[in-house]
Structure formats: structure tokens, C-alpha cells
Design a protein around this nucleic acid. Structure first.
Lengths: 246, 246
DNA sequence: CGCCACTTTGAGTAGTGTCAATGCTGGTGG
DNA sequence: CCACCAGCATTGACACTACTCAAAGTGGCG
């Protein structure tokens, strides 16, 4: 299909769904502007206040976005997972307003702010994809606001746990828990002690089962109820979800 | 400049800055798709779950966006002011995820979801404007998350008060307070009693002065400090701000 | 083995919510 | 015109959630 040497399907920016309707030559041109990069866990991709040089597309791994108050209090704004975009500041040339730190080993493709703007201007259909991605992010962010503002500690923890599991798939499978108690607390506006106590309580009630670095839901229905949903409902808290395939 | 009969500068969607580089004919075509409408205070523009028929551009007035939990708890997600867009769901044809209610008399222009998508496809430069608008909204939303998660009741109230004043302009001018104590509480994740007590305390300390339906900051510096900023900093909480002029 | 980071658990407390009573204001209808 | 009522704001007393500070347990790693 492609007539140049760049790597097909090298990253999410490279997948056809991000630029439908382009000629192979256009696709190759865009691919030529992309930079692949790998980060280790705990690496910082950029810091609050850095000039926004790049838009990142996350190919694999997870990244946390952190915002701080002068006195050191920290809040995790968002978990970025594979398939999502990172660094929207590249669209409008403002400095990053948060720090991005890898939770796992992370593979990204990035494109410089300058190249990005050129690509957008020349490929209108890509803008529409970007709009849809931003809207998804806004949806998630607003649901997080609701939950931060309205929910009690156990409701928050239950919502977070549910959000860590894929929306479609076995809700009772054991998954790796990449977040520490402190990080969970920083997502929820709680302290690590409170999170620990709530998790211990869920464990005692046999609603979840925690191993070291792993997490399993044994009674999804009770957890939904605890999260403040009706039993048959679905989680709304940070519904981590990739860009839907075209 | 324009060669058709549609009204120049009828609304923000109509202003040149939203579609730079278009011919007058294109501009007129777009204007023909817009519907002007007025709502009274307390009118509901749409409800949570309604199909997203329109994108709204707010010409004047203020609108609150409300999200609810099944048990009736409510959270105000955002205050929409003149110059902002409302109803981003029109971009991706999903139902509205919140209820929009006018706080004042409101003038809007709206465009149907179908027409919008056509316009975007035919006018790429408009997509870029939309992206920038969405990014602004995301910035505001993430700062709200930080404040909801990290701040104490007095810090939250101080931040909200500061955000109600225009970023550029006299910070000590008396402005109308459109929000009830309950609504302030619903923005901040507090109860109306707590908001009332904090406001009364600020009043006693002569940091603010409240009349019925009005609000004045008498000591901006102390309020900044109380909000958790360094004295010389600027407010980050819901920085209500119109789309910057081209 | 010993150190360090992370987690758990406990005791006490501060901050915020809950419930209730009162006052104030504006609107409505007699 | 006034009496009444409904909604909003204020204030108090009390309860309870979640925070703070502290200590001890756990597991990984040099």
C-alpha cells in the first residue's frame, strides 16, 4: 500500500484511522515527521512549565499527569493509556500545565509542534479525529470532576478500581495494579492511609482481592453499588479507553 | 464585505475569527445554517441524556452545566460564559452527558449536528479553531480537578470568588453574584452551610463584601493567598475567559 | 543482614456534613 | 395594603468522615 520505506503501523499516529482519505504519499510524509521514543518507568516525559515542544501518541504503557500546588500537594489529573494522545499544548504553543511521568515502560511516537500544525493544515480530516479525541478526554475529565466533588472515600475508591478494568472483558480477571496507595490517593483527593483502610475493608468483605502488585474484583455487582451506580450501570469514573477503531 | 443578507457579526460563530480564510460566499453559507435563540433564566437548554442535536455558541449570559448521581447529589461541571461553545457532543453524535441551565437570560446561536459536520469538512481552518477552544476547556477542567482534589473549603471558596472576576480588569469592582450558596456549593463539592460560613468569615475579616446579589473583593492579595496561590500569582480556578480575539 | 520504600493499623483530632431553628426577602393572593 | 408563604441565607449544636501523627509490619534489594 505504502510506497516509501517508513514503517507501517509504527504507532497510533501512523494508523490509517488517524488520517482517513490520505494518499500513501501523504501518509509517508507524515510518518517521516514522527519520532519514536521509549521511556522507562518513573521517567519524566516533560514537566509543568516546560515549553510544549511535542504532541505524543502513546503506543504502549501508562503515564500519569500530575499537577501541584506551591506547598507540595499533588493531584493526578489523568492516566494516559495506549492509544491516547498526550501534550495537547502542542496545538496552541502554550507551556505544559502538568508533569507527565511514566508508570511503566512506555513507547511513544511524537511529532514536533511545528510539524503538527503543518500536518493539520494540510490534512483536514485529521483535525476531526483530533477533535473527537479531545472530546473523549473532556468527557472523562468531567466525570472525574463529578466524582471528586460528590463522592465519599469508599465510593471514590470503588469507582477508581472499576475504572482500572477494561470496559469490555472479564471484570473478575486479575490485573496488575500499577498505582501505589499514594498514587491512588493523589487521583482521588484522599490520603494514602484512607485509601489503604478502604481497600483493606473491601478485602475483608471479599469484594476485591489484592495481591502484591495485582488486583482482582470478586464481586463486581457490590462494587458497582458501592461506587454509587445502580447495580446494572457501568462505571463512569475515568473510563480508560483507547480511541475507537475506525 | 459580505454579499448576502445574513446578519454580520450576529454571533460568535459568525465572527471572522472562527473561520479565517473563507470567502464571503462560504461565510454566508455558514451563517444561513445558524439559528438564533433566546432563553430566560432557569430555562433548560437540554438535559442529561438528550440526543445532542446542536452545538451552541453563547452570545450573552451564563449557563451552568450540571451532572447528577442517581441519589440526587448534583455537581456543577462548568460555567459557560459569552464567547464559549456549548454542546460538544454535537461533534460526535453522543447524547449530552449533563444538563445545561441558564443562570441569566441567554442569547445563543446554534447549529445542527448534521450541518456542523458538513461545515467542518468543508472548512478545515475552522476545525483548528475548534481544537483550540476544546483545549481551553480542557485546561479549565483540569484546573478544577486539581482544586477539587487538593483544596480545603476556604481555599475552594476563595478560588471560586477570584474566578468570578474578569482576569483583566478591576479586581475590586462590585460585580453581580449570579450563583446561590447552593450553586456555589455544587461547584465546589461542599454543602451550602459550609459555603455560607466561609463567606461570612471572609466578610468578618473584611476580605470580601457581600450585598444581596452582589460581591466585591476588598483585599485581593489576601484572597489570592487564601486560595493557595503565592501572593503575586493569578487565579487558576475556572478561569472564565472568552475565546481570544484573532 | 540491614536498609528502604511501601503498606497497614491505631489513636486522636480537625474539618466538614447533618439536622434544626431563625431571620430575611420577594412574591402572591386575599 | 397587608398577611402569608416559599426560597434563600445564616447560625448553632452535634456527629462523623477523613486527616494527622505515630508505630509496626512486609517485601525487595544491595
Amino acid at each position: 500500500m505504502s510506497t516509501c520505506y517508513c514503517e507501517i503501523d509504527a504507532c497510533v499516529l501512523c494508523e490509517a484511522r488517524l488520517y482517513p482519505g490520505l494518499t500513501p504519499e501523504q501518509v509517508c510524509h507524515i510518518r517521516g515527521l514522527l519520532i519514536r521514543q521509549t521511556y522507562d518507568a518513573h521517567d519524566v516525559l516533560f514537566r509543568d512549565g516546560d515549553p510544549a515542544g511535542y504532541l505524543f501518541a502513546v503506543r504502549s504503557g501508562q503515564i500519569k499527569l500530575i499537577s501541584s500546588l506551591p506547598d507540595g500537594r499533588q493531584q493526578i489529573l489523568h492516566l494516559v493509556v495506549a492509544g491516547q494522545l498526550l501534550g495537547r499544548e502542542a496545538f496552541n504553543n502554550r507551556p505544559y500545565a502538568y508533569t507527565a511521568e511514566a508508570l511503566t515502560e512506555v513507547n511513544v511516537c511524537k511529532i514536533s509542534s511545528r510539524d503538527l500544525q503543518q500536518v493539520l493544515e494540510q490534512n483536514p480530516s485529521m483535525s476531526i479525529r483530533v477533535i473527537q479525541t479531545l472530546i473523549q478526554e473532556l468527557d472523562q475529565t468531567e466525570m472525574l470532576i463529578r466524582d471528586l466533588g460528590l463522592k465519599t472515600a469508599p465510593e471514590k475508591v470503588a469507582s477508581l478500581i472499576l475504572s482500572l478494568f477494561p470496559a469490555r472483558g472479564d471484570q473478575t480477571a486479575e490485573i496488575p495494579l500499577l498505582l501505589s496507595r499514594r498514587e491512588m490517593a493523589e487521583m482521588l483527593g484522599l490520603t494514602e492511609e484512607t485509601v489503604s483502610r478502604v481497600m483493606a475493608e473491601f478485602n475483608r468483605k471479599k469484594i476485591i482481592r489484592t495481591g502484591k502488585g495485582t488486583l482482582q474484583i470478586t464481586q463486581p455487582q457490590r462494587l458497582y453499588t458501592l461506587a454509587g451506580f445502580e447495580p446494572a450501570s457501568s462505571p463512569t469514573f475515568i473510563p480508560v479507553r483507547a480511541i475507537p477503531a475506525h
